[in-house]
Design a protein around this nucleic acid. Sequence first.
DNA 1: CCCGATTGACTGCCGATGCAATGATTGCCA
DNA 2: TGGCAATCATTGCATCGGCAGTCAATCGGG
Lengths: 153, 153
Amino acid sequence: MGFYDSTNLYPDTSAGYLIRACNQLCHAQLDRAFADEGLTCVQWSALVSIYFGRAPTCAALARDMAHDKGAMTRMIDVLEARGLVRRDRDDSDRRVINLSLTEEGEAVAMRCRLKVIDCWNGWFADWPHEEIATFITQLQRLRTTLEASPACA
Amino acid sequence: MGFYDSTNLYPDTSAGYLIRACNQLCHAQLDRAFADEGLTCVQWSALVSIYFGRAPTCAALARDMAHDKGAMTRMIDVLEARGLVRRDRDDSDRRVINLSLTEEGEAVAMRCRLKVIDCWNGWFADWPHEEIATFITQLQRLRTTLEASPACA
DNA sequence: CCCGATTGACTGCCGATGCAATGATTGCCA
DNA sequence: TGGCAATCATTGCATCGGCAGTCAATCGGG
């Protein structure tokens, strides 16, 4: 019935294993690429999420990035202290603190974005564009599934 | 030339962003699935890598999992203390310590493997098998590229 | 109108991770 | 043969992330 059974799930054929490895390697490389901006890969992701309006608040940002809420608060502390992010309490709902980028925050995020574009174009250099597109679509699909899956047996 | 440019790299279309999200979500779910065995997702990966002979030593295991070498030592400490992993100093090269699973280690790893198979079959339930296969192939390819890429501009 | 449930931000605590340095061992090359 | 580089395991150190708990604000049902 299913794709996997006891005869074909090995480290080298396991989607989870491969995704983990890709994430680790990509993460490490981007961290190095961002070093001269004093940013972390994760911090940059947060800036971009805010920039493109995916996450108006701290809790939404944590959900969007599948990141811990508490850790996110501390991370925004850092980014705010560096003058990259602004916190403004919401008028209609006083629990909420709205996030936005400062001018410098936008500038840094966009500079780093160019670096990321270069990295990925390098890694995808040999791939037909069509194949990249389906790969991205599949990742989106998997992500949606995982978000919807509350637990597994 | 490249696939990405300033007009199409967004959180929702970025491979890195999506891979990170999938990894986080999958990781969290597997951690919960392994809770009754007292194992972490990462610990299980280590057991499996050893089991299938991908990583005879601690350093090789760290490389295979794109994990920190120092952290790996401590992780093996834990697994050894629980009686899941054995350490044996190599005869020919006295620097290296060979790793192997105890009987209980094998048993735990295989029990967890069944859970992982169930999880992934659930997540891939709607996918044609052919599509899953190409997805895995693409992940392998990306992993190889990332391993070979020393740095990026 | 009030009380319980929910949501958002924040904090303390613990374990895990990444980095750098150390000591021991081996291999290589002049 | 002697010394230098590389590799392996290990260990501090600082940081980060996940979990649980707290407080404040909002929402919804009786």
